[in-house]
Simulated scan of single mutants.
Amino acid sequence: MFFYALSSYFLLHHLPVRFRNRYLAGILVVSIFYLGVDTLFLKENNTCERQGLERLAQATEPVARISAECTVMSWWIVNRPEYTETNAELLKYWGVTKGKKLYYQEGW
């Protein structure tokens, strides 16, 4: 992105005036496309993962069971608590949980 912006800036200042307006229009079209494409196709804004993290933050047991509707801090559903050792440490460090809480995902 830095080099895209830098090269665009350079070209806008060094292109002849007749090409500059066309290039500026092209930059605007490409920029609007890349800025807007995520909001057009992204319907879910991690609501499910946030609910899982809230459940984990409110859990009183050292190993919590959370819903398997979506993943939490993982690309796949975690079905064994020992796989969440690093995640539990990170959540404790960030202050999401009060202590180290392992978790697993089960059921729909």
Results as ranks from 00 to 15, higher is better:
residue 82 E to T: 01
residue 18 R to D: 06
residue 89 E to S: 09
residue 9 Y to H: 09
residue 15 L to K: 05
residue 14 H to P: 00
residue 14 H to Q: 06
residue 34 Y to V: 11
residue 35 L to S: 08
residue 28 L to F: 15
residue 54 E to F: 06
residue 52 G to S: 08
residue 83 Y to I: 04
residue 45 N to Y: 14
residue 95 G to S: 03
residue 108 W to Y: 15
residue 106 E to N: 14
residue 10 F to A: 11
residue 57 A to D: 07
residue 17 V to R: 14
residue 9 Y to D: 05
residue 84 T to V: 03
residue 66 I to P: 03
residue 76 W to L: 08
residue 62 P to V: 06
residue 93 Y to E: 09
residue 7 S to I: 13
residue 90 L to M: 13
residue 5 A to W: 11
residue 37 V to P: 04
residue 93 Y to H: 10
residue 11 L to I: 04
residue 42 L to Q: 14
residue 53 L to K: 08
residue 105 Q to E: 00
residue 12 L to N: 07
residue 62 P to D: 11
residue 49 E to N: 03
residue 35 L to N: 12
residue 76 W to N: 12
residue 10 F to C: 02
residue 58 Q to K: 15
residue 106 E to V: 07
residue 57 A to R: 12
residue 30 V to A: 14
residue 90 L to W: 10
residue 52 G to W: 10
residue 31 S to G: 12
residue 13 H to F: 09
residue 54 E to S: 06
residue 102 L to K: 04
residue 62 P to F: 13
residue 28 L to N: 02
residue 103 Y to F: 15
residue 44 E to H: 13
residue 7 S to P: 00
residue 81 P to T: 00
residue 53 L to W: 04
residue 54 E to C: 01
residue 82 E to I: 02
residue 51 Q to F: 03
residue 80 R to Y: 09
residue 44 E to K: 14
residue 65 R to G: 01
residue 1 M to A: 07
residue 108 W to F: 10
residue 64 A to V: 07
residue 21 N to M: 10
residue 16 P to Y: 07
residue 85 E to F: 14
residue 68 A to G: 15
residue 45 N to G: 04
residue 99 G to R: 10
residue 56 L to P: 04
residue 84 T to R: 05
residue 15 L to N: 02
